[in-house]
Amino acid sequence: MQRQHDMGGMPSGPVDPDSPPTAPWAKLITATVGALREKKLMTVDEMRRALEDLPSEQYDRDYFERWAEALTDLLEEKGLATHDEIAGRMDEIRRRLEGGT
Protein backbone atom coordinates (compact mmCIF):
# COMPACT_ATOMS: atom_id res chain seq x y z
CA MET A 1 0.00 0.00 0.00
CA GLN A 2 1.27 3.45 -0.90
CA ARG A 3 1.31 5.66 2.16
CA GLN A 4 0.61 9.38 2.32
CA HIS A 5 4.20 10.58 2.43
CA ASP A 6 5.16 8.59 -0.70
CA MET A 7 3.99 11.25 -3.14
CA GLY A 8 6.64 11.10 -5.87
CA GLY A 9 4.92 10.95 -9.25
CA MET A 10 1.47 11.85 -7.94
CA PRO A 11 -0.50 14.51 -9.81
CA SER A 12 -0.35 17.98 -8.25
CA GLY A 13 -0.63 21.67 -9.08
CA PRO A 14 2.05 24.18 -10.11
CA VAL A 15 4.99 25.02 -7.87
CA ASP A 16 5.02 28.49 -6.32
CA PRO A 17 8.69 29.57 -6.36
CA ASP A 18 8.06 32.22 -3.70
CA SER A 19 9.64 31.47 -0.34
CA PRO A 20 8.73 33.57 2.68
CA PRO A 21 11.10 33.51 5.66
CA THR A 22 10.66 30.78 8.26
CA ALA A 23 8.52 31.86 11.24
CA PRO A 24 10.26 32.05 14.65
CA TRP A 25 7.95 29.37 16.12
CA ALA A 26 8.88 27.02 13.26
CA LYS A 27 12.54 27.56 14.02
CA LEU A 28 11.84 26.87 17.69
CA ILE A 29 10.19 23.55 16.84
CA THR A 30 13.16 22.64 14.63
CA ALA A 31 15.62 23.64 17.37
CA THR A 32 13.72 21.58 19.93
CA VAL A 33 13.85 18.51 17.71
CA GLY A 34 17.57 19.20 17.15
CA ALA A 35 18.27 19.46 20.88
CA LEU A 36 16.39 16.23 21.59
CA ARG A 37 18.38 14.49 18.86
CA GLU A 38 21.62 15.90 20.19
CA LYS A 39 20.74 14.44 23.60
CA LYS A 40 19.98 11.08 21.96
CA LEU A 41 16.40 11.24 23.22
CA MET A 42 15.08 10.98 19.68
CA THR A 43 16.41 9.90 16.29
CA VAL A 44 15.83 11.27 12.81
CA ASP A 45 14.09 8.03 11.86
CA GLU A 46 11.72 8.20 14.84
CA MET A 47 10.75 11.71 13.76
CA ARG A 48 10.26 10.53 10.19
CA ARG A 49 8.06 7.65 11.36
CA ALA A 50 5.99 9.97 13.56
CA LEU A 51 5.47 12.28 10.57
CA GLU A 52 4.48 9.44 8.26
CA ASP A 53 2.03 8.07 10.85
CA LEU A 54 0.12 11.34 11.25
CA PRO A 55 -3.58 11.27 10.34
CA SER A 56 -4.01 12.72 6.85
CA GLU A 57 -5.67 15.93 8.06
CA GLN A 58 -2.50 16.65 10.06
CA TYR A 59 -0.06 15.35 7.44
CA ASP A 60 -1.55 17.69 4.84
CA ARG A 61 -0.87 20.77 6.96
CA ASP A 62 2.01 23.17 6.52
CA TYR A 63 5.44 21.53 6.92
CA PHE A 64 6.30 22.89 10.37
CA GLU A 65 2.74 22.41 11.66
CA ARG A 66 3.20 18.79 10.67
CA TRP A 67 6.50 18.72 12.55
CA ALA A 68 4.85 20.18 15.65
CA GLU A 69 2.14 17.50 15.58
CA ALA A 70 4.66 14.70 15.06
CA LEU A 71 6.86 16.04 17.86
CA THR A 72 3.98 16.08 20.34
CA ASP A 73 3.15 12.47 19.42
CA LEU A 74 6.76 11.42 19.96
CA LEU A 75 7.03 13.28 23.27
CA GLU A 76 4.00 11.40 24.56
CA GLU A 77 5.26 8.09 23.24
CA LYS A 78 8.58 8.61 25.01
CA GLY A 79 6.98 9.75 28.25
CA LEU A 80 8.61 13.18 28.02
CA ALA A 81 5.37 15.22 27.85
CA THR A 82 1.74 14.29 27.22
CA HIS A 83 -0.70 15.86 24.80
CA ASP A 84 -2.76 16.96 27.81
CA GLU A 85 0.20 18.65 29.43
CA ILE A 86 1.00 20.49 26.21
CA ALA A 87 -2.64 21.54 25.67
CA GLY A 88 -2.85 22.68 29.30
CA ARG A 89 0.31 24.72 28.99
CA MET A 90 -0.92 26.28 25.76
CA ASP A 91 -4.06 27.46 27.59
CA GLU A 92 -1.94 28.79 30.41
CA ILE A 93 0.31 30.74 28.02
CA ARG A 94 -2.73 32.13 26.20
CA ARG A 95 -4.14 33.34 29.53
CA ARG A 96 -0.77 34.76 30.47
CA LEU A 97 -0.61 36.72 27.19
CA GLU A 98 -4.21 37.91 27.44
CA GLY A 99 -3.95 38.81 31.11
CA GLY A 100 -0.63 40.51 30.63
CA THR A 101 0.70 38.84 33.76
Binding site: A23, W25, A26, L28, T32, T72, M90, E92, I93
Partner: peptide, 8 residues
Protein backbone atom coordinates in the same frame (compact mmCIF):
# COMPACT_ATOMS: atom_id res chain seq x y z
CA UNK B 1 1.26 26.54 16.66
CA UNK B 2 3.15 29.46 18.16
CA UNK B 3 1.57 28.53 21.49
CA UNK B 4 2.38 24.88 20.93
CA UNK B 5 6.06 25.55 20.21
CA UNK B 6 6.37 27.73 23.32
CA UNK B 7 4.47 25.22 25.48
CA UNK B 8 6.73 22.36 24.39
Amino acid sequence: YELMATAI
